[in-house]
């Protein structure tokens, strides 16, 4: 399944300034693992030590939010992710 991952600007320094990365995976979790395999520095930002989604990360698939427990959610060819990072300034 070819899936396009759009990364928040604040993550681009971890992906050699790539804003969009294409991966192949059957679930959201598999797609994230492929992203991490290609850009290992993203692991610490995206996942907790126990493999759960980092609490400061939000994932949206085809424009809709995915629950933190939704890493096992199946994806289909052509799906598009957005990975956003929580911000808190005012």
């Amino acid at each position: 399944m070819s899936v396009k991952i759009n990364l928040a600007s604040s993550l681009h320094h971890l992906t050699n300034d790539q804003a969009v990365v294409e991966v192949n995976g059957n679930t959201i979790g598999q797609c994230l693992e492929q992203l991490i395999a290609r850009f290992p520095r993203t692991r610490k930002r995206l996942l907790e030590k126990n493999g759960a989604l980092n609490r400061i990360i939000n994932i949206y698939i085809n424009g809709e939010s995915v629950s933190p427990e939704g890493l096992a959610t199946a994806v289909k060819d052509g799906d598009e992710f957005h990975i956003e990072v929580i911000i808190s300034g005012g």
């Binding site: 424009g63 809709e64 939010s65 629950s67 956003e84």
Partner: peptide, 20 residues
């Protein structure tokens, strides 16, 4: 809906948010 503004690339994105 969460509105995400990226001034560096001058993009506004919108994501649907569900009640949990």
């Amino acid at each position: 809906r969460l509105l995400v503004y990226d001034g560096l690339n001058m993009k506004f994105s919108e994501f649907k948010v569900k009640r949990d």
